[in-house]
């Protein structure tokens, strides 16, 4: 299958130092937060790739770098063979940018309350000087709203309807890739089902590629073709969806799957996971998961494991087999 997005050795470092005067007085040094370290992955065209991880694992940072809201500190992101951070030909940059759209987590915060829905939805096309006659109505009908809604304001809609408006806006420019950052975590279960069904339908109809960012494993299992698991900014396991859920290889993935509440787990007594996510400013040496890992050996404390291919999975663990 053709690769649409190719992420190579991507890293992003944030400077979280105190102001220089404080550093001078307190004799502190500069501090850096490694939000994303050395992540490489490929997303095939017309598939759904899910990134999962707990808070602080760097999944949203990767999403923002892919759409160009943040610049990589190191490494590159190529979309259809074009690296937006380095490409100099303006026409190529504009064409590639039009292929990428994003859906955000909070549908209440991502729509301008003073704009009419028709203006919100057609903005991506208007910004490039395209033709917008009848576009708003067509897009709204495509996402299951009515064409008459085009003249209304965002406050007249419920959370699920707003997320549909966000999806309509993302579709306006005819993108190939949509980055969905926690698209349903602000929605209730019955509304979430409506939005997830809509996303699957649109993907099949229009041949879209999704980068789905979520902490909810049940949604990922439901939607994704391929899943990448992040821990403290590193990709620690990547596998086709079924393989990952049926046969997790990294101890962290195993822990995450065990800890997630199950609908049929009546009275289930789980052994709770040990410890918490470490401080990303001073991460543990070697493999970042070793202080919580039941399989850790001395080598894990000293060396950081590289990705290795095992069957259909890629795993960064010395003890995986």
């Amino acid at each position: 299958m053709k690769t649409l997005v190719s992420i190579n050795n991507l890293s992003r470092v944030f400077d979280v130092s105190r102001p220089w005067l404080n550093r001078l007085i307190e004799r502190g040094s500069k501090e850096y937060l490694h939000a994303v370290s050395d992540v490489s992955l490929n997303i095939p065209a017309q598939s759904i790739y899910a990134l999962v991880g707990e808070s602080g694992s760097g999944k949203s940072t990767i999403g923002k770098i892919v759409v160009g809201l943040l610049e990589p500190s190191n490494g590159s992101v190529e979309i259809g063979g074009v690296d937006l951070a380095r490409e100099t030909d303006k026409a190529t940059v504009a064409r590639t940018r039009a292929d990428i759209q994003m859906i955000f987590q909070d549908p209440y915060a991502s729509l301008n309350p003073r704009w009419r829905v028709s203006d919100i939805v057609t903005e991506p096309v208007r910004a490039r000087g395209g033709d917008i006659s009848g576009l708003a109505e067509r897009l709204l009908e495509q996402v299951g709203l009515s064409g008459e809604d085009a003249g209304k304001y965002p406050h007249e809609f419920s959370g699920g309807q707003r997320q549909r408006i966000c999806i309509a806006r993302a579709l306006a420019a005819g993108p190939k890739l949509i980055v969905c950052d926690e698209p349903t975590s602000a929605l209730d279960v019955s509304v979430q089902a409506q939005v997830l069904n809509l996303m699957s339908d649109l993907q099949e109809e229009l041949g879209l590629t999704y980068l789905l960012i979520s902490h909810d494993l049940t949604i990922v299992r439901h939607m994704a073709d391929r899943v990448g698991v992040l821990y403290l900014g590193r990709l620690i396991e990547e596998a086709p969806c079924d393989d990952l859920f049926d046969n997790p290889r990294h101890p962290y993935t195993k822990m995450l799957l065990d800890a997630a509440p199950k609908l049929d787990g009546f009275g289930r007594e789980v052994e709770p996971p040990k410890g918490e996510i470490p401080d990303p400013i001073n991460p543990p040496s070697g493999c970042a998961f070793h202080p919580r890992c039941p399989l850790a050996i001395d080598r894990c404390k000293q060396e950081s494991p590289q990705m290795q291919q095992i069957a259909s999975s890629r795993v960064a663990c010395f003890r995986a087999g």
């Binding site: 279960v189 069904n197 299992r221 439901h222 859920f245 609908l263």
Partner: peptide
């Protein structure tokens, strides 16, 4: 309408 961990890609029932 709740996605089940055991089912991949089955259409969700929606209210």
């Amino acid at each position: 309408s709740t996605p089940l961990a055991s089912q991949n890609r089955k259409r969700l029932n929606q209210i």
